[in-house]
Design a protein around this nucleic acid. Structure first.
Length: 203
DNA sequence: TGTCCGATTGGT
DNA sequence: CCAATCGGACAG
């Protein structure tokens, strides 16, 4: 067990497939005392580089914020948004190929008590069911930006796999400004899992 | 330097 | 439905 995901997994240029295959992987971010805090990935979105109007790297945009998107696959891209939330991404593909996969939901596996403390008086179903929520629960912030997923501060492990009939896909969330790219089915999630983020207004 | 707005969330 | 809350991107 505890099988580390190797570099090759992240190096694929097919970021949509990587997003699909990240489902079921275990995201591990040890607490400061070394305690394992982890969650199984249940929802992802692919951001497809310079041709994707929804991506920070659209049009070749390259700034201090998104610089790590241009590194080789297997790096962590963390950014801050809405004045209060962080978002955790996995960089994919070779260097100078600024694709990434946003992790939008995880199911708590280890260290759930620590997650509860970090999230305050929230019901368990709200601990990690959204990209901002899981960053709070797993103590992911700006400090992890650029970190290597083959290092010792944050990494992914094999955990379990899901067949295609257990997985759904559809348009990404919160990118209404992306024009013709808004409707691309680049979001993936595990059917019926309660840690998939809830879109406002849906059951 | 000034303005606009966001890969969200939680409460009304 | 909407406020919170502030850094990044870009215009000037």
């Amino acid at each position: 067990m505890n099988k580390l995901i190797p570099r090759e997994f992240y190096m694929s240029e097919d970021s949509v497939s990587v997003a699909r295959n990240l489902l079921g992987k275990l995201l591990v971010v040890p607490a400061s005392d070394g305690t394992r805090v982890s969650g199984m990935i249940v929802e992802t979105e692919a951001y497809m580089g310079i041709t994707d109007r929804g991506a920070h790297s659209f049009g070749g945009r390259r700034t201090a914020r998104n610089e790590v998107m241009y590194l080789e696959g297997g790096r962590v891209y963390v950014f801050f948004v809405y004045g209060m939330y962080y978002q955790f991404n996995v960089v994919t593909g070779p260097a100078e190929h600024p694709h990434a996969v946003l992790i939008r939901g995880v199911e708590p596996v280890e260290g759930i008590e620590i997650m509860r403390e970090r999230r305050g008086a929230m019901k368990d179903k709200n601990l990690t069911s959204g990209p901002g929520k899981l960053c709070i629960a797993m103590a992911i912030d700006r400090d992890l930006n650029g970190e290597d997923l083959l290092g010792s501060r944050v990494w992914l492990e094999e955990y379990r796999t899901f067949s295609d009939d257990e997985v759904s896909s559809g348009p990404r969330i919160g990118i209404d400004y992306a024009g013709e790219d808004t409707l691309n089915p680049w979001r993936f999630w595990i059917k019926d899992n309660i840690y998939v983020s809830k879109k406002k207004g849906l059951p």
